[in-house]
């Protein structure tokens, strides 16, 4: 389809490798701030894979919401809560080796299932554009759309109520 399709494929595999490396870094770096930045890189790579799947709208939403909003929120929370004084506290608990074994086993099982299942190799249908997505969102999925807007409002208010300081006059400890 595209004249540069081989180059695009190679680029996508490169993006996958970078995202996986960034994901590994974001779970293994001892400094939580560096871990958040590595997670931002992994999320940007996933946005690139959405672009490769011709889901441009999802890619833009991923960059806007995750890299723009969620990572900013995480960095705010890290700066509000991190005790910069004691660097010596270990970042991981003692379950590392056992959990690594379990995760590797789960991954090998998943890969075996994925490889032994016949998947459709190619697709000829054009990817849905933004207007199709919008019409589906306002058509068959309008109830879910309304529910998620109510949930987002509730979350907004709930997060403010949970995170706000208690009034000093009421029951200050």
């Amino acid at each position: 389809m595209l004249p540069l399709t081989l180059l695009v494929k190679a680029g996508l595999y490169l993006i996958m490798a970078i995202s996986l490396l960034a994901a590994v870094a974001s779970v293994s770096l001892p400094n939580i701030f560096h871990a958040a930045l590595a997670l931002a890189l992994a999320l940007l790579g996933i946005a690139g894979i959405y672009l490769g799947l011709q889901a441009e709208f999802v890619a833009v939403v991923q960059v806007l919401i995750y890299v723009g909003a969620v990572i900013t929120l995480v960095i705010f929370a890290i700066m509000l809560t991190n005790r910069m004084a004691d660097r010596s506290t270990p970042a991981k608990n003692s379950l590392g080796a056992a959990c690594l074994a379990v995760a590797a086993g789960l991954f090998s099982i998943l890969v075996r299932f994925i490889r032994s299942t016949p998947w459709p190799e190619t697709t000829s249908a054009p990817a849905p554009g933004t207007s199709e997505i919008g019409q589906a969102l306002m058509g068959p999925y309008v109830f879910a759309f309304e529910v998620i807007s109510v949930i987002l409002i509730a979350v907004l208010i709930g997060a403010m109520v949970i995170a706000k300081k208690d009034n000093p006059g009421e029951d200050a400890p």
Partner: peptide, 8 residues
Amino acid sequence: VVRRNIVG
């Protein structure tokens, strides 16, 4: 599973 920090 292995992170101690809740943000992690």
